[in-house]
Simulated scan of single mutants.
Amino acid sequence: MTARDKDPQPDPGWYYNTRTGEVEHGELSRAIDRLGPYPDRETAQRALEIARARTEEADAVDEAEREWEEGRDEA
């Protein structure tokens, strides 16, 4: 992709502000208070649900790896 092909005004994305509970279009607040970017307002509104699901998935992978390691150690 050449510089000429890049969008000169790309969409700034949608963010969920964890401090205020509000959805923002663009990087309006401090990065530490934001989740995102998300492609649209509706997805940003579900940011906490999405984060919770991703955390549960990662925890399940960690637990499976831990069990596998424990099984290897016993063999």
Results as ranks from 00 to 15, higher is better:
Arg34Ala: 02
Val61Lys: 14
Val61Ile: 14
Gly71Lys: 01
Ala31Val: 09
Gln45Pro: 06
Glu67Ile: 13
Asp11Met: 02
Ala3Asn: 09
Gly13Thr: 12
Val23Ala: 07
Arg34Ser: 03
Thr20Met: 11
Arg66Ala: 01
Asp7Trp: 00
Gly36Gln: 07
Arg19Cys: 07
Glu70Trp: 03
Gly36Glu: 06
Glu42Ile: 05
Thr43Gly: 09
Arg30Gly: 09
Leu28Glu: 14
Ala44Gln: 05
Asp59Leu: 15
Asp7His: 03
Glu67His: 10
Glu27Ile: 01
Arg72Tyr: 00
Arg54Gln: 15
Glu65Val: 03
Ala58Trp: 04
Asn17Trp: 02
Leu28Val: 11
Arg41Tyr: 14
Glu22Val: 10
Glu69His: 05
Arg66Pro: 02
Asp11Trp: 02
Leu35Ala: 06
Trp68Val: 02
Gly13Asp: 01
Arg4Ala: 13
Asp11His: 07
Tyr15Cys: 05
Ala53Trp: 08
Asp40Cys: 15
Trp14Val: 05
Val23Ile: 14
Glu74Phe: 10
Ala75Thr: 13
Glu67Tyr: 11
Glu74Ala: 14
Glu67Ser: 10
Arg52Asn: 01
Thr20Trp: 03
Tyr15Pro: 00
Gly71Glu: 05
Glu74Trp: 08
Pro39Phe: 08
Ala64Leu: 15
Gly26Asn: 06
Pro37Asp: 07
Asp11Ile: 01
Pro10Gly: 08
Pro39Met: 09
Glu22Arg: 15
Ala75Trp: 10
Pro39Gly: 15
Glu22Met: 14
Gly71Asp: 09
Lys6Cys: 11
Gly36Ile: 10
Arg19Ser: 14
Tyr38Leu: 12
Ile50Gly: 08
Trp68Leu: 10
Asn17Lys: 12
Thr55Phe: 08
Thr20Glu: 11
Arg41Val: 08
Tyr16Gln: 07
Ala53Gly: 06
Glu74Val: 03
Arg72Ser: 04
Leu48Ala: 06
Glu65Asn: 10
Glu67Leu: 14
Glu22Gln: 15
Ala3Trp: 02
Arg52Cys: 00
Asp62Arg: 11
Arg72Glu: 08
Ala31Ile: 13
Glu22Thr: 10
Ala3Leu: 01
Glu67Gly: 02
Ile50Tyr: 06
Asp62Gln: 08
Glu69Trp: 05
Val23Arg: 04
Asp73Gly: 01
Asp5Thr: 00
Glu27Gln: 07
Arg72Gly: 01
Ala75Met: 12
Gly36Cys: 05
Glu63Asp: 15
Arg4Ile: 02
Pro10Asp: 07
Ala75Pro: 00
Leu35Pro: 03
Pro12Asp: 12
Thr43Val: 12
Glu67Arg: 15
Lys6Asn: 05
Glu24Asp: 12
Val61Leu: 10
Glu69Arg: 07
Ala58Cys: 05
Glu63Ile: 02
Arg4Ser: 02
Glu65Gln: 14
Arg34Thr: 07
Ala60Gln: 11
Thr2Asn: 03
Arg54Tyr: 04
Gly36Arg: 01
Glu65Pro: 00
Pro12His: 11
Ser29Val: 07
Trp14Thr: 00
Glu57Val: 03
Ala44Ile: 06
Gln45Asn: 14
Gly71His: 06
Asp11Arg: 00
Asp40Ile: 15
Gln45Lys: 15
Thr18Ile: 12
Gly26Cys: 04
Glu49Ala: 06
Asn17Met: 08
Ala60Ser: 12
Asp7Arg: 04
Arg30Thr: 11
Ala75Val: 09
Arg46Ile: 00
Asp7Pro: 09
Gly26Met: 13
Glu70Asn: 12
Leu48Tyr: 04
Pro10Cys: 00
Asp40Val: 09
Ile32Phe: 09
Arg54Val: 07
Tyr38Phe: 15
Asp33Gly: 07
